[in-house]
C-alpha cells in the first residue's frame, strides 16, 4: 500500500482516493434517485382526491425545527472533519456524536410529524399526493436512519482502531453523505413545505 504523506489522511492511499471518488459517483446516482422522487411528487402534488391537500396539513413549526436541527448537524459534521484534519481524535468524536444526536432529533420530530398526519387521517393510501409525500419524506428519513447506524459504526471503529487511513477515509465519506442529506432536505423544505404552504 503506497502512502502519500502530502495528502490529508483520508486521501492518503490510492484505495482511499478511489473510495472518495466512487462515493461522489454514488452521490450522483442518489441525486438521480431523489430527482425522480421529486418529479413524482410534483406530478402528483395536486392529486389529493378526497383527502386533504398539502396546504391543509403542513405546519411550519415542526418543519422549521427539523430544518434547524439538520442544518446544525451539517455544521457539526463539518467541524468533526476539521478536527480530524488537525488530528484531534477526541474533539472529532465529540462533534460526530453531536451530529448523530441532532440527526436522531431530526428523525424524532419527523416521526412526530408523521404521527400528526396519520392522526389527521392522512396515510400512505389516502391519495396519490399523500403517497408521494410520505415516500419522498420517508426515503429521506430512511437515509438519515441509515446514516445514524453507519455513523455509530464509524464512531466505534474510531474508538477501537484510532484515527488512521481507513477510519479517516470512512469518516470523511460519511460527512459527504451527511451533507448530501442536508442538501436534499433544503429542497424538500423549499419545494414541498414552503411551496405547499403558499
Amino acid at each position: 500500500m503506497k502512502i502519500d504523506a502530502s495528502q490529508p489522511l483520508e486521501y492518503g492511499t490510492e484505495e482511499n482516493r478511489n473510495r472518495i471518488f466512487g462515493f461522489w459517483l454514488f452521490l450522483g446516482a442518489e441525486i438521480a434517485l431523489f430527482a425522480t422522487l421529486f418529479t413524482v411528487y410534483f406530478v402528483l402534488a395536486d392529486r389529493h382526491a378526497s383527502g386533504p391537500s398539502g396546504a391543509e396539513i403542513f405546519e411550519i413549526t415542526p418543519v422549521l425545527l427539523e430544518t434547524f436541527v439538520l442544518l446544525t448537524s451539517s455544521f457539526t459534521i463539518g467541524l468533526a472533519v476539521h478536527a480530524m484534519r488537525l488530528g484531534l481524535k477526541k474533539q472529532m468524536m465529540i462533534f460526530m456524536i453531536i451530529t448523530l444526536l441532532l440527526g436522531a432529533g431530526f428523525l424524532g420530530i419527523e416521526i412526530f410529524e408523521f404521527f400528526t398526519y396519520v392522526h389527521e387521517g392522512v396515510t400512505l393510501s389516502t391519495s396519490a399526493f399523500a403517497s408521494s409525500l410520505f415516500t419522498l419524506l420517508g426515503t429521506h428519513g430512511a437515509h438519515v436512519t441509515f446514516g445514524l447506524l453507519w455513523g455509530t459504526a464509524i464512531l466505534i471503529q474510531l474508538k477501537k482502531y484510532g484515527l488512521d487511513h481507513s477510519t479517516a477515509n470512512k469518516s470523511f465519506i460519511f460527512s459527504l453523505y451527511w451533507h448530501f442529506l442536508d442538501v436534499v432536505w433544503i429542497f424538500i423544505f423549499s419545494f414541498v413545505y414552503l411551496k405547499g404552504l403558499m
Binding site: 392529486r47 389529493h48 382526491a49 400512505l124 393510501s125 426515503t139
Partner: peptide
C-alpha cells in the same frame, strides 16, 4: 419499483385508478 412495491404491498395510490393515482 419502490413505488410499485408500495402500491402492491402497502396500499399506496401512485398508479391506481382511484384517489388520484396516475
Amino acid at each position: 419499483l419502490l413505488l410499485m412495491m408500495f402500491d402492491r404491498i402497502f396500499g399506496s395510490q401512485f398508479f391506481t385508478m382511484a384517489n388520484g393515482g396516475m
